[in-house]
Amino acid sequence: MPREWTDLFVLPDGEAPPANAGGEEQEGGRGRGRFFRRLRENLSKTRQALGAEIQATLFETVDEATWERLEEALIMADVGASTTAKVVAQLEQEARDGGLEGGEALSARLTELLAGIARTESPVRIDLSPKPTVIMAVGVNGTGKTTTIGKLAWHLRRELGRTVILGAADTFRAAAVEQLQGWAQRAGCEIVTGREGADPGSVAFEAVRRGREQGADVVIIDTAGRLHTQDHLMDELTKIRRVIGKQLDAAPHETLLTVDATTGQNGLRQAKLFSRAVPVDGVVLTKLDGTAKGGIALAIAGELGIPVKLIGVGEALEDLRPFDADDFARALIAP
């Protein structure tokens, strides 16, 4: 499971990430001391959101109530009733068969089971060898698409030294283009925009064209947030994808669905209907810095086989991180 940016992305043959990969934030006005303090803060935040210890009381005693407590913990984490039932039944079975003794063994096995569901058979890493690699971001309104794209562009640019072009194909939401423009400036990459209300397909097409023309490494297409139940908007998404494919064979190479960690069981419907419109390669689980555990991502991985690739644990640039299944599993049942 990737923990570092360099693990998440497969770089083209023979290319190494620049020496300062993972290095200093290059925005003006920040001293070295400040940078390290921020880094420390961020790491502790990530730990809080992800690497927390398993709920100590969960396996204090093992009896009927244990399984109920576990069930409650998983359901409260939005894992959903059916996935929860499966996991609890299996752990209970294994405990009964005598393979697992004591709280430590039980919680280790539980983490393993959960992480096992999160690890799907689909590739977790994102291949950057096509040139340009076209990444398309889709999702429901307010899940954090534009922010994710902005941060992703920043990391690709600053940490992996890739040249990035952004395509602002969210021509619907008022001021969405301005928001992405702000990010483009911070990340130091070019942006292709259209008028508000312009055809999003044409913006995507132009962005990919420009990416080819300039020999950019990555083109990231932002799309308007849409509810998965709006058929015409889902059709529009299919069309944007098709238009991109016309400009560049096999593109988009990676379609990422942003899912808000606070989302409940409806997230499964979101993932299902979005992947019906455009094949979804991975989930970006955003807003994990609150108290929500994002267990719906586990249900999505388990039932639809779509892996989580990135997580968002805060507002800062470094708060977009590669996903780690073990950390995630532990955090799900943390208090």
């Binding site: 307010g142 808000d260 606070t262 989302t263 409940g264 409806n266 997230g267 609150g290 108290t291 555990k293």
Partner: peptide
């Protein structure tokens, strides 16, 4: 409050 919110709605 987003209608799609899960269990966390109560905390929020």
């Amino acid at each position: 409050v987003d209608a799609m919110t899960g269990q966390d709605a109560v905390n929020v």
